[in-house]
Design a protein around this nucleic acid. Structure first.
Lengths: 145, 145
DNA sequence: CGATTCCGCAACTGATCTTGTTACGATTGT
DNA sequence: ACAATCGTAACAAGATCAGTTGCGGAATCG
């Protein structure tokens, strides 16, 4: 099954924006993400709606970070993307009234629910600032070797 | 994103098989799962390969459980389906050499890896026998009310 | 033996989803 | 005016997966 890389891509884009002084055009971001400017606008729309970034039309316009990286968690981005489905496996809905199916679905849902809680907690705890500093570490390590 | 319900369906099918005396034809299973006999054979092929079920051609043939439900874990089924992708979100592979992308992917992968471990542990701990008894409880509860 | 009931497998179809693309309008700054 | 940008809708291309068809082989029953 195909995995949704929008979360990863948006993290990537915002950190790069920060390093470019907090601003970038759709064109620039599209080049970074190896995609199309329209796809960037589409994906960033949710982030704008949630006040994580702002966009300005016209010459000299583009996208700008609306918060510091330390004030944006992975969960903020996840929500801004309308909370995409986390799991690629799921319940069957063939016969919701079948008690066997209910037992099966209950067991699966319980497990996935625990996993979801774990992921949510991590997403809420990690900020883009953390990732940016992680990058700094990698950069320093790369230079040192 | 569309979720893969094969795991749920196979659990459902095997528990029903057990209650039908451990045997069923593809036709019968297809009816239970609201699908096509060919789809059933396709999906069950992995379970047969792993020795969870056996199939017999010809009149009076069909599928038979090759182990007791207490000796089949959810992980056994998961493996028999060739370990389908668990998560619907994932890393981007746009620029694997980009250190920002590495930092982002590292953080995501770490989180998903923890979640994967949690799910694996649960899958390994739960048997079809457990689910079947869960069904019994539901049945008893349904009658009581 | 012949008919029937099964599974095995390959190939094709169809629906759905996602991404990429094109096009056009609106807005801003020079 | 003109060029640079975003906003959005509509369309195209591609991948994926479930479903379907068709045919062959095996087992059973008479």
């Amino acid at each position: 099954m195909r995995t949704d890389s929008r979360l990863s891509r948006m993290l990537h884009a915002l950190i790069h924006m920060d390093r470019l002084g907090g601003k970038a055009t759709s064109e620039q971001l599209a080049a970074m993400l190896a995609t199309n400017p329209v796809v960037v606008r589409r994906t960033m729309a949710g982030l704008r709606r949630d006040g994580l970034v702002a966009s300005e039309p016209g010459q000299g316009g583009g996208w700008a970070l609306a918060r510091r990286l330390d004030d944006i968690t992975l969960m903020d981005i996840y929500r801004a993307l309308d909370e995409p489905t986390l799991f690629a496996i799921g319940q069957s809905q063939d016969h919701p009234e079948c008690l066997v199916e209910q037992a099966v679905n209950g067991a699966l849902e319980g497990t996935l629910s625990q996993a979801r809680d774990l992921i949510s907690a991590r997403f809420a705890a990690v900020t883009l600032g953390d990732l940016s500093r992680d990058f700094d570490d990698r950069f320093a390590a790369g230079r040192g070797s």
